[in-house]
Nucleic acid binder design. Structure first.
Lengths: 252, 252
DNA sequence: GTGTTTATCGTCAGGAAGACGACTATGATC
DNA sequence: GATCATAGTCGTCTTCCTGACGATAAACAC
């Protein structure tokens, strides 16, 4: 491998973000409207250039903070504060994925609890939380009957990969708690699983599973009735990051 | 996200390869000796620049072919031919990971059956299969008593990530068959698991598990005694790529 | 033949999960 | 205030899977 610094093609490197949250029982992703060509006016994933002195993770955390105000915390640290989970997803570098120049995008996956309305540089109309199914359907019609344009660039593929990563990772890790506020009930955690997987889970078996896994949930002592019905115990995420044996995703 | 093509810092983009195989009951990785500074004379992972008209996967497949002669096949296709499994691993882009310039490396993971001696541009002394434990130990001594220098750049980290990916992925997928030739026995497959995980598995329970999983193994009708002992049935990898329920890795 | 090696089949106990009954403690409705 | 709807929590039972391990089979070495 001769390594000639004068003989490499220059690339632009960006980070794109798949920011997921659960709103109204649906898995939603953050989308921003593009202000310039190409794909002007179309929805896209938030992202931007990596700066010259910046690590890839730093760039992703900076973009996340700019778009949502969320602070990222290290994926290896337990989700104690109310920051978002952030991890690298994959890298997309097809020549021609950006018509202007050769751009390699290092996509990152961020998981956040339900948030107030997003802000994209202060302009709310240019950023929104959209159900991932709406963003991924090709040329259909949204809930409001308006035609849905596919996401810009290859962002539909990136979003699909991020959603699949989240769906599989909550099986064997405690990552689902990243969608919950600091204190949450077993039922709220179950509704996260149901929204991400799009299935219904048995509340009794789910309760047995999560409370029976050592280190997964820590009771805080409090209770809440914010979901109606009988008061539920409040928990925090425990130190355990791996779920063994995993939570089984029902097939079909 | 203002997107000004004149205002992005230029990056060099490379692919680095973690090529794993199983030799003599040990998980081994392909290492090449560096001919130039920095890290001249040190061992490193094979890799090279992504060309201007090349996809990232194409670049990785090209490097793999140059180093080993192996043809990569699509990760989504079943491992039918005797090509190698190739998938993207992760991307490493710390400023300063290469002292000369800003390099972002998209690491790929390749799994291959046991091969003849490697060739690095025709020079055998500059490429070798080394047990991953030997490559990952920091400043220890190899089997021959010579001091072991750590891998160049951040390649130890990349290799460790690749090994961890392989270790976890053979749990829930049929990826272990990528380490085997086209036809193999249950015992040979078990020795792959034992080498990758570094544990001993019960031959009877392993046999029950792999032969009882529908679509995992397809008997070819033949038998072999190449391992000694009673003749063993020969199998090919079946179409199933996911193992459900997964193969459980013994703890400790 | 005897011993060794590897492959393969069987048995049994323990653990986890799916299905589901039963009970509890709230707020909402009449 | 009684009743109802809602959500949470505890148990039970059956089934499946795994880990431990005995037993048999078919080759080779001597």
């Amino acid at each position: 491998m001769p390594y000639d610094p004068s003989a490499f093609p220059p690339f632009a490197v960006t980070v794109d973000l798949v920011v997921l949250t659960v709103r109204r029982h649906a898995l939603c992703a953050l989308a921003v409207r593009r202000g310039e060509a190409p794909f002007q006016g179309r929805w896209a994933l938030p992202g931007g250039f990596v700066r010259a002195d910046e690590d890839l993770t730093q760039a992703a955390a900076r973009e996340l903070a700019e778009e949502t105000g969320l602070l990222a915390h290290d994926p290896d640290a337990p989700a104690q504060d109310n920051g978002a989970h952030l991890e690298q997803l994959a890298t997309y570098g097809d020549p021609g994925r950006d018509p202007r120049m050769r751009v390699v995008s290092v996509a990152h996956l961020a998981l956040a609890p339900d948030l107030p309305a997003p802000r994209a540089g202060g302009d709310a109309s240019n950023a929104r939380w959209a159900p991932v199914e709406e963003l991924l359907q090709q040329g259909g019609y949204g809930r409001d009957g308006e035609p849905v344009a596919p996401l810009a660039f290859d962002h539909a593929r990136i979003l699909a990969d991020g959603v699949e990563r989240a769906r599989s990772k909550i099986e064997y890790s405690s990552l689902a708690t990243a969608f919950c506020p600091t204190e949450f009930t077993v039922g709220e955690l179950r509704r996260v699983y149901e929204a991400v997987w799009g299935v219904a889970l048995d509340p009794r078996n789910f309760h047995r599973k999560v409370t029976g896994t050592p280190g997964f949930l820590v009771p805080t002592g409090g209770t809440t009735t914010r979901q109606g019905g009988r008061p539920a115990q409040l928990f925090r995420a425990g130190g355990a990051t791996l779920l063994n044996p995993p939570m089984l995703r029902p097939e079909v």
